[in-house]
Design a protein around this nucleic acid. Structure first.
Length: 510
RNA sequence: GGCCGAUUCGUCUAGCGGUUAGGACAUCGCCCUUUCACGGCGGUAACACGGGUUCGAUUCCCGUAUCGGUCACCA
Protein backbone atom coordinates (compact mmCIF):
# COMPACT_ATOMS: atom_id res chain seq x y z
CA UNK A 1 0.00 0.00 0.00
CA UNK A 2 1.38 3.37 -0.99
CA UNK A 3 1.73 6.22 1.43
CA UNK A 4 -1.21 8.59 1.54
CA UNK A 5 -0.69 11.89 -0.21
CA UNK A 6 0.53 14.86 1.81
CA UNK A 7 1.17 18.22 0.22
CA UNK A 8 2.05 21.57 1.66
CA UNK A 9 1.63 25.21 0.91
CA UNK A 10 4.62 27.03 2.35
CA UNK A 11 4.41 30.79 1.94
CA UNK A 12 6.75 33.34 3.39
CA UNK A 13 5.13 36.00 5.59
CA UNK A 14 6.81 38.91 3.84
CA UNK A 15 3.63 40.70 2.81
CA UNK A 16 0.21 39.96 1.41
CA UNK A 17 -0.18 36.68 -0.43
CA UNK A 18 0.11 37.19 -4.17
CA UNK A 19 -2.75 35.85 -6.31
CA UNK A 20 -0.25 33.46 -7.91
CA UNK A 21 0.37 32.07 -4.45
CA UNK A 22 -3.33 31.50 -4.06
CA UNK A 23 -3.30 29.48 -7.24
CA UNK A 24 -0.36 27.42 -6.01
CA UNK A 25 -2.25 26.77 -2.78
CA UNK A 26 -5.34 25.90 -4.78
CA UNK A 27 -3.57 23.34 -6.95
CA UNK A 28 -2.05 21.77 -3.85
CA UNK A 29 -5.45 21.65 -2.25
CA UNK A 30 -7.20 20.19 -5.30
CA UNK A 31 -4.55 17.54 -5.61
CA UNK A 32 -4.69 16.64 -1.92
CA UNK A 33 -8.46 16.35 -1.93
CA UNK A 34 -8.52 14.47 -5.18
CA UNK A 35 -6.08 11.91 -3.82
CA UNK A 36 -7.76 11.72 -0.45
CA UNK A 37 -4.67 13.17 1.19
CA UNK A 38 -3.77 16.02 3.49
CA UNK A 39 -3.03 19.67 2.92
CA UNK A 40 -0.47 21.31 5.19
CA UNK A 41 0.31 24.95 5.80
CA UNK A 42 3.84 25.83 6.83
CA UNK A 43 5.14 29.32 7.42
CA UNK A 44 8.59 29.88 5.99
CA UNK A 45 9.78 32.78 8.08
CA UNK A 46 13.51 32.12 8.12
CA UNK A 47 14.36 35.60 6.89
CA UNK A 48 14.10 37.85 9.88
CA UNK A 49 14.84 40.93 7.79
CA UNK A 50 11.78 40.48 5.67
CA UNK A 51 9.31 39.68 8.38
CA UNK A 52 6.13 41.72 8.05
CA UNK A 53 3.67 41.87 10.93
CA UNK A 54 0.20 40.74 9.99
CA UNK A 55 1.33 38.84 6.93
CA UNK A 56 0.82 35.43 8.50
CA UNK A 57 -2.71 36.25 9.59
CA UNK A 58 -3.36 37.60 6.11
CA UNK A 59 -2.33 34.26 4.62
CA UNK A 60 -4.71 32.40 6.92
CA UNK A 61 -7.55 34.81 6.13
CA UNK A 62 -6.95 34.69 2.40
CA UNK A 63 -6.96 30.90 2.26
CA UNK A 64 -10.12 30.77 4.35
CA UNK A 65 -11.83 33.28 2.07
CA UNK A 66 -10.85 31.25 -0.98
CA UNK A 67 -12.28 28.11 0.55
CA UNK A 68 -8.94 26.33 0.72
CA UNK A 69 -9.04 24.25 3.85
CA UNK A 70 -5.93 23.37 5.78
CA UNK A 71 -5.83 19.93 7.38
CA UNK A 72 -2.65 20.39 9.35
CA UNK A 73 -0.22 23.17 10.06
CA UNK A 74 -0.06 26.76 11.15
CA UNK A 75 -3.39 27.88 12.49
CA UNK A 76 -4.78 24.39 13.00
CA UNK A 77 -1.94 22.45 14.61
CA UNK A 78 -0.93 18.86 14.09
CA UNK A 79 1.56 16.15 15.02
CA UNK A 80 4.54 17.88 13.41
CA UNK A 81 4.22 21.23 15.18
CA UNK A 82 5.61 23.80 15.27
CA UNK A 83 4.78 24.75 11.67
CA UNK A 84 6.59 28.06 11.80
CA UNK A 85 10.15 27.54 10.66
CA UNK A 86 11.56 30.20 12.95
CA UNK A 87 10.51 27.94 15.81
CA UNK A 88 12.30 24.91 14.42
CA UNK A 89 15.83 26.22 14.25
CA UNK A 90 17.34 23.48 16.41
CA UNK A 91 16.20 20.86 13.94
CA UNK A 92 17.88 22.57 11.01
CA UNK A 93 21.07 23.21 12.97
CA UNK A 94 21.25 19.56 13.86
CA UNK A 95 20.89 18.44 10.26
CA UNK A 96 23.35 21.02 9.00
CA UNK A 97 25.83 19.90 11.62
CA UNK A 98 25.30 16.31 10.57
CA UNK A 99 26.17 17.21 6.99
CA UNK A 100 29.35 18.91 8.18
CA UNK A 101 30.29 15.91 10.30
CA UNK A 102 29.76 13.62 7.34
CA UNK A 103 31.90 15.80 5.10
CA UNK A 104 29.01 16.88 2.90
CA UNK A 105 29.02 20.47 4.05
CA UNK A 106 31.53 22.85 5.58
CA UNK A 107 31.91 26.02 7.61
CA UNK A 108 32.68 29.23 5.77
CA UNK A 109 33.89 32.46 7.35
CA UNK A 110 34.00 34.73 4.34
CA UNK A 111 32.63 38.21 4.86
CA UNK A 112 30.24 39.90 2.47
CA UNK A 113 33.13 42.02 1.18
CA UNK A 114 35.26 38.98 0.52
CA UNK A 115 32.44 37.34 -1.38
CA UNK A 116 31.96 40.45 -3.47
CA UNK A 117 35.64 40.58 -4.22
CA UNK A 118 35.61 36.95 -5.28
CA UNK A 119 32.71 37.53 -7.66
CA UNK A 120 34.32 40.59 -9.15
CA UNK A 121 37.56 38.77 -9.65
CA UNK A 122 35.84 35.91 -11.43
CA UNK A 123 33.81 38.21 -13.61
CA UNK A 124 36.89 40.15 -14.54
CA UNK A 125 38.57 36.89 -15.47
CA UNK A 126 35.56 36.06 -17.65
CA UNK A 127 34.77 32.96 -15.68
CA UNK A 128 31.61 31.20 -16.90
CA UNK A 129 29.90 31.73 -13.57
CA UNK A 130 30.95 33.76 -10.58
CA UNK A 131 30.02 31.29 -7.93
CA UNK A 132 31.24 29.68 -4.76
CA UNK A 133 31.81 26.13 -6.00
CA UNK A 134 34.09 23.12 -6.14
CA UNK A 135 36.83 25.19 -7.73
CA UNK A 136 36.62 28.55 -6.01
CA UNK A 137 35.98 27.27 -2.51
CA UNK A 138 39.62 26.30 -2.19
CA UNK A 139 40.56 29.98 -2.39
CA UNK A 140 38.15 31.06 0.30
CA UNK A 141 38.20 31.07 4.05
CA UNK A 142 36.40 27.94 5.12
CA UNK A 143 36.87 24.69 6.97
CA UNK A 144 38.26 23.08 3.83
CA UNK A 145 41.12 25.53 3.53
CA UNK A 146 41.72 26.34 7.18
CA UNK A 147 43.33 24.01 9.68
CA UNK A 148 40.95 22.17 11.97
CA UNK A 149 42.15 23.87 15.13
CA UNK A 150 41.85 27.30 13.55
CA UNK A 151 38.30 26.53 12.51
CA UNK A 152 37.58 25.44 16.05
CA UNK A 153 39.17 28.56 17.44
CA UNK A 154 37.19 30.89 15.21
CA UNK A 155 33.92 29.23 16.11
CA UNK A 156 34.75 29.22 19.80
CA UNK A 157 35.65 32.89 19.56
CA UNK A 158 32.14 33.55 18.30
CA UNK A 159 33.18 34.54 14.79
CA UNK A 160 30.17 34.46 12.47
CA UNK A 161 30.07 31.62 9.99
CA UNK A 162 27.71 29.90 7.59
CA UNK A 163 27.43 26.28 6.61
CA UNK A 164 27.71 25.62 2.91
CA UNK A 165 26.85 22.55 0.91
CA UNK A 166 29.86 20.79 -0.56
CA UNK A 167 28.44 20.41 -4.02
CA UNK A 168 30.13 17.68 -6.05
CA UNK A 169 32.31 18.79 -8.94
CA UNK A 170 31.00 16.50 -11.62
CA UNK A 171 27.75 14.74 -11.23
CA UNK A 172 24.57 14.51 -13.25
CA UNK A 173 21.48 15.29 -11.18
CA UNK A 174 18.14 14.13 -12.55
CA UNK A 175 14.63 14.67 -11.43
CA UNK A 176 11.34 13.57 -12.88
CA UNK A 177 8.95 16.48 -12.70
CA UNK A 178 5.30 15.46 -12.77
CA UNK A 179 4.46 18.26 -15.16
CA UNK A 180 7.64 18.60 -17.18
CA UNK A 181 9.18 15.16 -17.27
CA UNK A 182 12.88 14.49 -16.80
CA UNK A 183 15.08 17.47 -16.06
CA UNK A 184 18.85 16.98 -16.03
CA UNK A 185 21.32 19.38 -14.53
CA UNK A 186 25.04 19.06 -14.10
CA UNK A 187 26.24 19.64 -10.56
CA UNK A 188 28.83 22.11 -11.82
CA UNK A 189 25.93 24.46 -12.42
CA UNK A 190 24.97 24.31 -8.78
CA UNK A 191 27.08 26.35 -6.41
CA UNK A 192 27.94 25.72 -2.78
CA UNK A 193 24.67 27.06 -1.44
CA UNK A 194 24.48 28.45 2.04
CA UNK A 195 22.45 26.02 4.12
CA UNK A 196 22.67 27.69 7.50
CA UNK A 197 23.01 31.45 7.75
CA UNK A 198 25.21 33.26 10.23
CA UNK A 199 22.16 34.15 12.30
CA UNK A 200 21.67 30.44 12.92
CA UNK A 201 18.58 30.18 10.77
CA UNK A 202 18.47 27.97 7.70
CA UNK A 203 18.00 29.13 4.15
CA UNK A 204 14.97 27.98 2.21
CA UNK A 205 16.91 25.15 0.64
CA UNK A 206 17.77 23.39 3.87
CA UNK A 207 14.58 24.22 5.73
CA UNK A 208 12.18 23.05 3.07
CA UNK A 209 13.92 19.72 2.62
CA UNK A 210 14.20 18.98 6.32
CA UNK A 211 10.59 19.93 6.94
CA UNK A 212 9.17 18.19 3.91
CA UNK A 213 10.97 15.05 4.98
CA UNK A 214 9.95 15.26 8.63
CA UNK A 215 6.37 16.16 7.77
CA UNK A 216 6.01 13.27 5.37
CA UNK A 217 5.36 15.40 2.32
CA UNK A 218 4.84 13.21 -0.75
CA UNK A 219 4.41 15.84 -3.45
CA UNK A 220 5.99 19.26 -3.73
CA UNK A 221 3.79 21.42 -5.92
CA UNK A 222 5.25 24.90 -6.32
CA UNK A 223 5.93 27.65 -8.83
CA UNK A 224 8.26 27.32 -11.78
CA UNK A 225 10.66 29.82 -10.24
CA UNK A 226 11.87 26.90 -8.11
CA UNK A 227 12.77 24.68 -11.02
CA UNK A 228 16.39 25.85 -11.27
CA UNK A 229 17.04 24.94 -7.64
CA UNK A 230 15.18 21.65 -7.73
CA UNK A 231 18.33 19.66 -8.61
CA UNK A 232 20.01 21.17 -5.57
CA UNK A 233 17.13 19.90 -3.51
CA UNK A 234 17.52 16.42 -4.95
CA UNK A 235 21.17 16.56 -3.98
CA UNK A 236 20.24 17.56 -0.46
CA UNK A 237 17.82 14.66 -0.09
CA UNK A 238 20.61 12.38 -1.19
CA UNK A 239 23.16 13.82 1.22
CA UNK A 240 20.73 13.73 4.09
CA UNK A 241 20.05 10.08 3.31
CA UNK A 242 16.41 10.56 2.45
CA UNK A 243 16.46 10.03 -1.27
CA UNK A 244 14.31 6.91 -1.17
CA UNK A 245 11.42 8.83 0.38
CA UNK A 246 11.99 12.01 -1.56
CA UNK A 247 8.73 13.69 -2.59
CA UNK A 248 7.77 14.01 -6.21
CA UNK A 249 8.04 17.44 -7.77
CA UNK A 250 5.56 19.37 -9.85
CA UNK A 251 6.55 22.84 -11.02
CA UNK A 252 3.64 25.05 -11.98
CA UNK A 253 3.66 27.55 -14.84
CA UNK A 254 3.90 31.20 -13.82
CA UNK A 255 1.27 33.91 -14.02
CA UNK A 256 2.43 36.50 -16.52
CA UNK A 257 1.69 40.17 -17.09
CA UNK A 258 -1.50 40.89 -19.06
CA UNK A 259 0.66 42.45 -21.75
CA UNK A 260 4.36 42.87 -22.26
CA UNK A 261 7.04 40.71 -20.71
CA UNK A 262 7.61 39.21 -17.33
CA UNK A 263 5.71 37.79 -14.47
CA UNK A 264 2.66 39.42 -13.00
CA UNK A 265 3.50 42.16 -10.55
CA UNK A 266 1.82 44.63 -8.25
CA UNK A 267 2.68 47.36 -10.70
CA UNK A 268 0.77 45.62 -13.52
CA UNK A 269 -2.23 45.41 -11.28
CA UNK A 270 -2.09 49.11 -10.46
CA UNK A 271 -1.65 49.97 -14.11
CA UNK A 272 -4.47 47.74 -15.23
CA UNK A 273 -6.75 48.82 -12.43
CA UNK A 274 -7.27 45.37 -11.00
CA UNK A 275 -6.31 43.61 -7.78
CA UNK A 276 -3.43 41.22 -7.43
CA UNK A 277 -4.05 40.24 -3.82
CA UNK A 278 -6.97 38.14 -2.64
CA UNK A 279 -7.77 40.50 0.22
CA UNK A 280 -7.18 44.17 0.75
CA UNK A 281 -3.87 44.83 2.45
CA UNK A 282 -2.64 47.80 4.40
CA UNK A 283 1.10 48.00 4.54
CA UNK A 284 1.97 48.33 8.22
CA UNK A 285 5.08 50.39 7.45
CA UNK A 286 3.75 52.89 4.92
CA UNK A 287 0.02 52.69 5.53
CA UNK A 288 -0.48 52.19 1.82
CA UNK A 289 -3.56 50.21 0.89
CA UNK A 290 -3.52 47.60 -1.87
CA UNK A 291 -6.84 46.49 -3.29
CA UNK A 292 -8.09 42.92 -2.96
CA UNK A 293 -10.27 40.66 -5.06
CA UNK A 294 -12.70 40.39 -2.18
CA UNK A 295 -13.06 44.13 -1.69
CA UNK A 296 -13.32 44.72 -5.43
CA UNK A 297 -16.40 42.51 -5.46
CA UNK A 298 -15.07 39.24 -6.76
CA UNK A 299 -16.86 36.26 -5.30
CA UNK A 300 -14.54 33.58 -3.91
CA UNK A 301 -16.04 30.89 -6.13
CA UNK A 302 -15.50 33.07 -9.20
CA UNK A 303 -11.92 33.84 -8.21
CA UNK A 304 -11.19 30.17 -7.63
CA UNK A 305 -12.82 29.09 -10.87
CA UNK A 306 -10.83 31.70 -12.78
CA UNK A 307 -7.56 30.77 -11.09
CA UNK A 308 -8.08 27.04 -11.53
CA UNK A 309 -8.34 27.43 -15.28
CA UNK A 310 -5.22 29.57 -15.52
CA UNK A 311 -2.76 26.81 -16.30
CA UNK A 312 -4.98 23.80 -16.04
CA UNK A 313 -7.83 22.40 -18.06
CA UNK A 314 -9.68 19.12 -17.65
CA UNK A 315 -9.89 18.58 -21.40
CA UNK A 316 -13.65 18.97 -21.44
CA UNK A 317 -15.60 22.04 -22.49
CA UNK A 318 -16.92 22.75 -19.04
CA UNK A 319 -16.10 26.27 -17.86
CA UNK A 320 -17.97 26.65 -14.60
CA UNK A 321 -16.82 24.49 -11.70
CA UNK A 322 -17.70 24.28 -8.06
CA UNK A 323 -14.81 23.45 -5.75
CA UNK A 324 -16.05 19.85 -5.57
CA UNK A 325 -16.13 19.63 -9.35
CA UNK A 326 -12.63 21.03 -9.54
CA UNK A 327 -11.47 18.40 -7.08
CA UNK A 328 -13.16 15.64 -9.03
CA UNK A 329 -11.58 16.58 -12.33
CA UNK A 330 -8.19 17.90 -11.25
CA UNK A 331 -5.12 16.13 -12.58
CA UNK A 332 -1.52 17.33 -12.41
CA UNK A 333 -0.83 15.65 -15.73
CA UNK A 334 -3.15 18.16 -17.34
CA UNK A 335 -1.43 21.22 -15.97
CA UNK A 336 -0.12 23.33 -18.82
CA UNK A 337 3.63 23.88 -19.08
CA UNK A 338 3.81 27.43 -20.38
CA UNK A 339 3.16 30.57 -18.37
CA UNK A 340 -0.32 32.07 -18.49
CA UNK A 341 -1.10 35.71 -19.06
CA UNK A 342 -3.36 37.18 -16.48
CA UNK A 343 -6.60 38.35 -18.11
CA UNK A 344 -8.81 40.22 -15.68
CA UNK A 345 -11.66 40.35 -18.21
CA UNK A 346 -12.08 36.64 -17.87
CA UNK A 347 -12.19 36.98 -14.11
CA UNK A 348 -14.97 39.52 -14.53
CA UNK A 349 -16.87 37.17 -16.78
CA UNK A 350 -16.65 34.42 -14.18
CA UNK A 351 -17.86 36.84 -11.54
CA UNK A 352 -20.79 37.76 -13.77
CA UNK A 353 -21.68 34.10 -14.04
CA UNK A 354 -21.61 33.55 -10.30
CA UNK A 355 -23.53 36.75 -9.55
CA UNK A 356 -26.33 35.49 -11.80
CA UNK A 357 -26.31 32.19 -9.97
CA UNK A 358 -26.51 33.75 -6.50
CA UNK A 359 -29.98 33.71 -4.91
CA UNK A 360 -31.58 37.18 -4.83
CA UNK A 361 -32.00 37.02 -1.07
CA UNK A 362 -28.24 36.70 -0.61
CA UNK A 363 -27.43 39.71 -2.73
CA UNK A 364 -30.24 41.88 -1.36
CA UNK A 365 -28.82 42.92 2.04
CA UNK A 366 -25.86 44.67 0.44
CA UNK A 367 -28.14 46.63 -1.86
CA UNK A 368 -30.35 47.55 1.06
CA UNK A 369 -27.33 48.72 2.98
CA UNK A 370 -26.05 50.85 0.13
CA UNK A 371 -29.46 52.39 -0.40
CA UNK A 372 -30.01 53.12 3.25
CA UNK A 373 -26.54 54.56 3.60
CA UNK A 374 -27.51 56.96 0.85
CA UNK A 375 -30.63 57.92 2.76
CA UNK A 376 -33.23 55.93 0.85
CA UNK A 377 -35.91 53.73 2.26
CA UNK A 378 -35.27 50.20 1.11
CA UNK A 379 -37.01 47.34 2.88
CA UNK A 380 -35.74 43.80 2.20
CA UNK A 381 -38.55 42.96 -0.23
CA UNK A 382 -37.71 45.96 -2.32
CA UNK A 383 -33.99 45.19 -2.28
CA UNK A 384 -34.72 41.65 -3.38
CA UNK A 385 -36.85 42.82 -6.31
CA UNK A 386 -34.12 45.21 -7.36
CA UNK A 387 -31.60 42.37 -7.29
CA UNK A 388 -33.86 40.16 -9.38
CA UNK A 389 -34.31 42.95 -11.89
CA UNK A 390 -30.66 43.91 -12.22
CA UNK A 391 -28.26 41.14 -11.24
CA UNK A 392 -28.10 39.74 -14.75
CA UNK A 393 -26.79 43.04 -16.04
CA UNK A 394 -23.74 43.44 -13.83
CA UNK A 395 -20.35 41.87 -13.21
CA UNK A 396 -20.26 42.83 -9.54
CA UNK A 397 -22.86 42.83 -6.82
CA UNK A 398 -22.03 46.38 -5.81
CA UNK A 399 -22.92 47.56 -9.32
CA UNK A 400 -26.55 46.61 -8.76
CA UNK A 401 -27.17 49.63 -6.59
CA UNK A 402 -25.64 51.90 -9.21
CA UNK A 403 -27.91 50.40 -11.87
CA UNK A 404 -30.85 51.08 -9.59
CA UNK A 405 -30.31 54.84 -9.51
CA UNK A 406 -33.45 55.50 -11.54
CA UNK A 407 -35.46 53.49 -9.07
CA UNK A 408 -34.45 55.50 -6.05
CA UNK A 409 -34.50 58.90 -7.72
CA UNK A 410 -37.24 60.57 -9.68
CA UNK A 411 -35.63 62.03 -12.79
CA UNK A 412 -33.97 65.38 -12.24
CA UNK A 413 -33.23 65.71 -15.92
CA UNK A 414 -34.47 63.95 -19.02
CA UNK A 415 -32.38 62.58 -21.85
CA UNK A 416 -32.73 65.36 -24.37
CA UNK A 417 -32.18 63.27 -27.46
CA UNK A 418 -34.90 60.82 -26.48
CA UNK A 419 -37.26 63.62 -25.55
CA UNK A 420 -36.67 65.38 -28.85
CA UNK A 421 -37.29 62.21 -30.80
CA UNK A 422 -40.09 60.57 -28.84
CA UNK A 423 -41.93 63.13 -26.71
CA UNK A 424 -44.57 63.99 -29.33
CA UNK A 425 -48.34 64.52 -29.28
CA UNK A 426 -49.05 60.81 -29.10
CA UNK A 427 -46.64 60.43 -26.22
CA UNK A 428 -48.28 63.24 -24.28
CA UNK A 429 -51.73 61.81 -24.95
CA UNK A 430 -50.51 58.38 -23.90
CA UNK A 431 -48.88 59.64 -20.72
CA UNK A 432 -51.96 61.63 -19.82
CA UNK A 433 -54.26 58.68 -20.47
CA UNK A 434 -52.04 56.33 -18.49
CA UNK A 435 -51.85 58.86 -15.69
CA UNK A 436 -55.64 58.99 -15.51
CA UNK A 437 -55.93 55.22 -15.74
CA UNK A 438 -53.48 54.86 -12.89
CA UNK A 439 -55.47 57.17 -10.66
CA UNK A 440 -58.58 55.14 -11.29
CA UNK A 441 -56.84 51.78 -10.98
CA UNK A 442 -57.29 49.89 -7.73
CA UNK A 443 -55.97 46.40 -8.48
CA UNK A 444 -52.64 44.96 -7.42
CA UNK A 445 -49.70 47.01 -8.63
CA UNK A 446 -47.53 44.30 -10.11
CA UNK A 447 -45.76 44.13 -13.47
CA UNK A 448 -48.21 41.83 -15.22
CA UNK A 449 -51.23 43.90 -14.26
CA UNK A 450 -49.51 47.18 -15.04
CA UNK A 451 -48.70 45.78 -18.44
CA UNK A 452 -52.34 44.96 -19.10
CA UNK A 453 -53.50 48.29 -17.78
CA UNK A 454 -51.13 50.13 -20.09
CA UNK A 455 -52.07 47.99 -23.08
CA UNK A 456 -55.79 48.47 -22.50
CA UNK A 457 -55.37 52.20 -22.01
CA UNK A 458 -53.44 52.51 -25.24
CA UNK A 459 -55.99 50.48 -27.14
CA UNK A 460 -58.75 52.76 -25.90
CA UNK A 461 -56.77 55.83 -26.83
CA UNK A 462 -56.03 54.39 -30.24
CA UNK A 463 -52.28 54.59 -29.77
CA UNK A 464 -49.81 51.88 -30.79
CA UNK A 465 -47.98 50.97 -27.61
CA UNK A 466 -44.64 50.38 -29.28
CA UNK A 467 -44.58 53.96 -30.49
CA UNK A 468 -44.72 55.51 -27.06
CA UNK A 469 -42.73 53.13 -24.86
CA UNK A 470 -39.52 55.10 -25.16
CA UNK A 471 -41.38 58.25 -24.22
CA UNK A 472 -42.90 56.50 -21.22
CA UNK A 473 -39.50 55.29 -20.16
CA UNK A 474 -37.89 58.69 -20.39
CA UNK A 475 -40.83 60.23 -18.55
CA UNK A 476 -40.55 57.72 -15.74
CA UNK A 477 -36.79 57.36 -15.46
CA UNK A 478 -35.29 60.26 -17.38
CA UNK A 479 -33.29 57.81 -19.41
CA UNK A 480 -33.71 56.06 -22.72
CA UNK A 481 -32.11 52.86 -21.49
CA UNK A 482 -32.74 50.56 -18.59
CA UNK A 483 -34.31 47.40 -17.31
CA UNK A 484 -37.88 46.24 -17.79
CA UNK A 485 -40.20 49.22 -17.35
CA UNK A 486 -43.17 47.31 -15.92
CA UNK A 487 -41.01 45.81 -13.21
CA UNK A 488 -39.45 49.18 -12.58
CA UNK A 489 -42.91 50.63 -12.00
CA UNK A 490 -43.83 47.78 -9.73
CA UNK A 491 -40.76 48.41 -7.61
CA UNK A 492 -41.16 52.18 -7.31
CA UNK A 493 -44.85 51.68 -6.58
CA UNK A 494 -48.02 53.25 -7.83
CA UNK A 495 -47.75 56.56 -6.02
CA UNK A 496 -44.26 57.23 -7.26
CA UNK A 497 -45.22 56.18 -10.78
CA UNK A 498 -48.10 58.59 -10.78
CA UNK A 499 -46.01 61.36 -9.33
CA UNK A 500 -43.23 60.88 -11.88
CA UNK A 501 -45.73 60.87 -14.72
CA UNK A 502 -47.19 64.10 -13.45
CA UNK A 503 -43.79 65.66 -13.12
CA UNK A 504 -42.91 64.67 -16.68
CA UNK A 505 -46.14 66.03 -18.05
CA UNK A 506 -45.48 69.34 -16.34
CA UNK A 507 -41.77 69.57 -17.04
CA UNK A 508 -41.59 68.31 -20.58
CA UNK A 509 -43.14 71.12 -22.59
CA UNK A 510 -44.06 70.53 -26.14
C1' G B 1 25.88 35.93 -20.35
C1' G B 2 25.62 30.47 -18.09
C1' C B 3 21.94 26.95 -16.78
C1' C B 4 16.78 25.33 -16.86
C1' G B 5 12.00 25.71 -19.01
C1' A B 6 8.32 27.11 -22.62
C1' U B 7 6.17 28.17 -27.76
C1' U B 8 -1.86 26.34 -31.02
C1' C B 9 -6.69 32.35 -32.55
C1' G B 10 -5.38 39.20 -29.29
C1' U B 11 -5.98 36.15 -24.29
C1' C B 12 -6.98 31.28 -21.47
C1' U B 13 -6.82 26.62 -23.66
C1' A B 14 -8.42 21.34 -26.28
C1' G B 15 -5.43 18.35 -29.28
C1' C B 16 -1.31 13.46 -27.30
C1' G B 17 0.67 10.83 -36.24
C1' G B 18 -4.47 11.15 -40.50
C1' U B 19 -9.52 16.65 -37.35
C1' U B 20 -13.45 21.26 -41.95
C1' A B 21 -7.54 22.33 -35.77
C1' G B 22 -12.61 22.33 -30.95
C1' G B 23 -14.30 25.51 -26.68
C1' A B 24 -14.19 30.02 -23.55
C1' C B 25 -12.96 35.50 -22.87
C1' A B 26 -12.51 39.73 -25.92
C1' U B 27 -14.17 41.62 -30.73
C1' C B 28 -17.81 41.99 -34.92
C1' G B 29 -22.79 40.82 -36.92
C1' C B 30 -27.79 38.95 -36.47
C1' C B 31 -31.94 37.59 -33.40
C1' C B 32 -34.75 38.50 -28.93
C1' U B 33 -36.65 43.15 -26.46
C1' U B 34 -40.47 49.05 -25.43
C1' U B 35 -34.79 50.75 -24.91
C1' C B 36 -29.84 49.51 -22.91
C1' A B 37 -28.00 45.30 -21.08
C1' C B 38 -28.48 40.00 -20.29
C1' G B 39 -29.34 35.87 -23.26
C1' G B 40 -29.44 32.98 -28.00
C1' C B 41 -27.24 32.26 -32.86
C1' G B 42 -23.31 33.13 -36.15
C1' G B 43 -18.60 35.47 -38.12
C1' U B 44 -13.28 37.13 -38.07
C1' A B 45 -9.06 34.94 -35.89
C1' A B 46 -3.93 30.25 -34.29
C1' C B 47 -0.26 25.41 -34.91
C1' A B 48 7.06 30.72 -34.31
C1' C B 49 10.78 29.25 -38.26
C1' G B 50 14.12 25.59 -40.64
C1' G B 51 15.64 20.72 -41.05
C1' G B 52 14.77 15.68 -40.33
C1' U B 53 11.75 10.72 -38.93
C1' U B 54 7.24 8.94 -41.42
C1' C B 55 3.01 7.00 -46.63
C1' G B 56 1.49 11.24 -43.62
C1' A B 57 3.38 15.94 -38.99
C1' U B 58 0.13 20.90 -34.85
C1' U B 59 1.45 16.17 -32.68
C1' C B 60 8.05 12.66 -32.52
C1' C B 61 13.61 14.25 -32.94
C1' C B 62 17.42 18.19 -33.86
C1' G B 63 18.62 23.14 -34.66
C1' U B 64 17.25 28.55 -34.90
C1' A B 65 14.33 32.44 -33.10
C1' U B 66 11.45 34.46 -29.41
C1' C B 67 9.59 34.53 -24.52
C1' G B 68 9.98 33.18 -19.37
C1' G B 69 12.53 31.63 -14.93
C1' U B 70 17.06 31.43 -12.25
C1' C B 71 22.07 32.48 -11.00
C1' A B 72 21.90 36.14 -2.51
C1' C B 73 23.78 34.59 4.38
C1' C B 74 15.37 36.10 -0.12
C1' A B 75 11.86 32.82 -0.26
Amino acid sequence: MSKSVRVRFAPSPTGPLHIGGVRTALYNYLFARKMGGQMLLRIEDTDQNRFVPGAEQYILDALAWAGIQIDEGQGVGGPHAPYRQSERRDIYQQEAQRLVDEGKAYYAFDTADELDAMRQRLEAANAPAAQYNAITRMQMRNSLTLKADEVRARIDAGEPYVIRLKTPRKEEVRLNDLIRGWVNVHSSAIDDKVLLKSDGLPTYHLANIVDDHLMGITHVIRGEEWLPSAPLHVLLYRYLGWEDTMPQFAHLPLLLKPEGNGKLSKRDADLGGFPIFPLQWTDPATGQVARGFREDGYLPEATINFLALLGWNPGTEQELFTMDELIASFDLAQVHKAGARFDIQKAQWFNHQYIRLRPDAELAPAVQQQAEAAGYDCPPEKAEKIVALLKGRVNFAHEIYGEAATIFNAPATYDEAIVAAKWNDDAIRAATAFYDALLAYEGPFVADDIKHLLADTMTQAGIKQGKIMQAMRVALTGSGAGPDLMLTMEIIGKDETVSRLKQALQTLAR
